[in-house]
């Protein structure tokens, strides 16, 4: 925890019309830290995550990435910021008309302006890392959900992001495929990646997270180490939620 903050969310608010989705969210993620966000559906945790790369535009507040405020700025500032923030979606969102390799090289070529040789080499390294180098020429439709999600992770990693955001990365997967994706995430953590994860994989959170944040009704109710949150939650809402999910 002595590390400098890599991602800082300060006084974040998000409203849709009269509905307030997020209220005064403050959260810091230190370099190399894995922060896990849990909470019931509709608690605003995905919205908060999507505000971190401004796929969702915050109503007010600041997002500070590696010491730089990413609010405001031109659309090209926005694109440059997003290069540094990798995102993995629940629905994978691979490009169906491109091979796996092209999925991973597209943004390297067009946004980072890497050469084809460089982008291909980098893509193969990343595919190797997620265990799918042999699928480089396959198309997304030929892959299982777990494989697609690992390609999506490789696609984000290839851009050398400072932070990785995971939005329920395993929720759309068949149970037997979840493990392969979690293994890749665990490996990332071991290599020192800064990660902010929204997920329902409580066992995984307990094992790998540095810190767990519980959100409900658009606010952070409580945060602490996995042992604190899962072992002795302080708030009633946290206790109620945990007893429900552990069934």
């Amino acid at each position: 925890m002595a590390n400098r903050p890599m991602l800082e969310i300060a006084a974040l608010e998000k409203r849709f019309g009269a509905n307030t989705i997020l209220k005064q969210i403050d959260l810091k993620v230190a370099e190399g830290e894995l922060v896990f966000v849990i909470g019931p559906s509709g608690s605003g945790k995905s919205t908060m995550l999507r505000c971190c790369n401004r796929l969702e535009e915050p109503t007010s507040g600041d997002i500070i990435l590696d010491g730089r405020n990413i609010m405001g700025g031109t659309s090209s500032d926005l694109a440059r910021m997003r290069l540094q923030v990798g995102m993995v979606f629940q629905g994978f969102h691979l490009y169906p008309h491109m091979s796996v390799l092209k999925n991973v090289t597209l943004a390297q070529r067009k946004a980072l302006k890497r050469s084809k040789v460089e982008a291909d080499a980098r893509a193969m390294d990343m595919l190797e890392r997620v265990g799918l180098a042999h699928k480089a020429d396959a198309y997304p439709a030929e892959l299982s959900g777990g494989q697609q999600q690992r390609v999506a992770i490789a696609r984000a990693l290839a851009l050398d992001p400072k932070v990785m955001l995971f939005d329920e990365p395993t929720s759309a997967l068949d149970p037997e495929l979840v493990g392969s994706v979690l293994k890749v995430m665990k490996d990332l953590k071991a290599k020192g990646m800064t990660m902010l994860v929204v997920s329902h994989e409580m066992a995984f959170a307990r094992e790998t997270a540095d810190r767990v944040v519980f959100m409900d009704g658009g606010v952070i109710v409580e945060e602490g180490t996995p042992d604190e949150i899962f072992g002795s939650p302080k708030a009633d809402r946290t206790r109620a939620f945990l007893s429900r999910v552990s069934g």
């Binding site: 659309s75 440059r80 997003r82 923030v85 995102m87 979606f89 969102h93 490009y95 597209l106 943004a107």
Partner: peptide
Amino acid sequence: GQWEAAASTGLSR
């Protein structure tokens, strides 16, 4: 999601 995935990797509109 395709627009979002592309935007999240730093591609312009």
